[in-house]
Nucleic acid binder design. Structure first.
Lengths: 203, 203, 203, 203
DNA sequence: AATGAATGAGCTTTCATTCAT
DNA sequence: AATGAATGAAAGCTCATTCAT
């Protein structure tokens, strides 16, 4: 069951969709710790047992959510790049889109990047590896920037991209946790922080 | 009764200390979600009831830990600044010390910065406010840097310091969650990321 | 798993019935203070968790019991009135039936009338209001007695009925608590006390 | 220890008094079920352990309270009788004083008459027997009434007195539990009920 | 495709009580 | 005369999960 060859064989009704959606809703309202199968079932309007028809366990459901989030983030980043005239602009758009995604989808974001793979047994780290696809978009922009001269050439584009990503993640993460001083938190701060994170990379 | 001679081993407030220490241990091993009073008691070797002699509740225990962590981080940052000849060097030392602290004390770090104040009712946001004291050290270094010319003058030192902090936090946080690609994670990466975070601020 | 074939013995809502019945048993044996979900479960032969399938909380279970008791008392009083030729006889039968019910069903009676509504939060006073339906039967008999001349007309039938009820309750209550001197307690005493309580109302 | 020959040997400081008083206060505020040694200690301002210096157990404390209540009720009834010109008036005063005591001292009253001796193990029924002294005052009034002609002669003064007592107890008890319809509860109702309880006994 | 019934393990917390000092 | 430290037992309740239907 866990490693069914094709996800299309799994019953794929509207209920599965509803479960995922309501779970996201619960996540944003009560956090991961407050998540329970019963609550999800109540929110969806089905029995707790029914959830197990679509997801093998609570962890599996969480992972489905993470996968979906990674997919959506990927799509968001892809769309953001469209129409950029320089690599530098491309990078800027990526950064903004990333932060925007995190703030707009806390339900996805927190599960996607806060959970420790080591504490989510039962499932391989495979899902987490997908995250890299997103970082790779940053890497690609850096490489392009070295080519078109709008970004500084780094020793390692991989490293620079990963470093940039950690900075953006910190920004999103502390914002979501409401740990930024209320007197400075806001759009202006986000802009400044995003710019500051990229500064090192600009030509 | 079972382990009769024990009380002599634990003279007085030593149990409180032991509880805090074992809780930190459990936190790093199983995370906040996996924390339970019973587990703590088992680890400490006392009854679950005894914990309540020293802490009013699980939340109170957690907060004691957060407070302690904030205190230690503060001391660490304070010590790190000593002996810096320029503000720029001072900032660099602060950054390195911050990241080092997070990586060295995951048990403190995660509780300190991962928990959402809104989900930890029962206790006021007061504890969280202490976190600012730490950010203020960064602010002070930036101000000093504008004075001695080793750091670029920013529109707002508060904003720049907070932005720098988010970047460092992201670095620590993703490292602890083991979400950095294993092929690049390591000391070199940390150095690069820390440098990149500060780049915008250097004169 | 332990007592596998059990489910067949308990077809459907029979467990709910069993819980109510065993709870009544426990109540009479150990009193309300000694009541616990685990004890009930042990008595019923199910898990403590299962009780929550049928009752939202301990209070809810208690209230279901109170409601049921009120219902039964009502039916008992209704049946007792049948065949009385005068209102006076009707009143006498009501009194005797009330006391008999209390003594025969201590498990219901104590929960029904001993608990303070103010200390049973979580549930509205609605259940308690049902108790009045029972007092109203006494009122009705008094009104009928004023009409057929077998009972003295009172300034307020409501007040007289309520006063009579308190007297009967005291009798039941002290009997159940075994606080009546053993040398006089018994059927004869009950008869005398019931008669004495009604004396003021007889024409 | 439990059967110490003379209670005067027991340490008898102000603390003992304070414990009894605070316990009464707690009883009236939170009821018997809400009573705990810790709460008492907190209210008194001493350690929970200290209570055990004066009372062997929670039950013993409760019993001390019951004894004290019985004593006070006795004194109240004794004082009430003074100055009555007829036995009938004497009886009336007793009744009113009894009800008044119950309503004025719910903390005593409920523990005194609501607890079942069978559920308060560890201590003999001896304390409860003292209650009879109070009923005997009613008996004495009835006997006197038969002599002075102001009260009807009953077959058994003991029985009549006990029956009267149960009626008064029911009145107090339901009043304290706030089970009397709010529309009729009040002084007028108390008067009516007290009169109704005595009616059978008046010449 | 979906559910109701059921459970064992676990949770935080409170309790009365004991013991050494 | 009084206390701090400690505990086993138990409380009400929630959890993820299974199984038969």
């Amino acid at each position: 069951m866990p490693d069914a060859p094709a996800p299309t064989t799994v019953p794929n009704g509207a209920l599965r969709r509803a479960i995922l959606d309501e779970t996201r809703g619960l996540l944003v309202r009560e956090g991961y710790a407050g998540l329970s199968m019963r609550k999800i079932a109540r929110a969806v309007g089905c029995s707790a047992t029914s959830i197990y028809l679509y997801f093998d366990s609570k962890d599996a459901l969480t992972h489905a959510l993470i996968d979906e989030g990674m997919e959506r983030l990927h799509a968001t980043l892809e769309a953001a790049e469209v129409g950029a005239s320089t690599a530098r602009e491309r990078l800027d758009r990526l950064c903004r889109a990333y932060v925007r995604f995190g703030l707009d989808h806390p339900e996805y974001y927190e599960t996607m990047f806060q959970l420790h793979p080591q504490r989510m047994r039962r499932y391989p780290a495979e899902s987490y590896r997908r995250a890299r696809r997103n970082v790779e978009r940053f890497t690609a922009a850096l490489v392009a920037g070295a080519a078109d001269g709008t970004l500084r050439e780094s020793t390692s584009a991989d490293v620079a991209a990963a470093a940039l990503w950690t900075a953006l993640h910190g920004l999103v993460s502390l914002h979501l946790a409401q740990r930024i001083d209320r007197r400075i938190a806001g759009e202006a701060f986000l802009d400044a922080a995003i710019a500051q994170a990229q500064a090192a990379l600009r030509a």
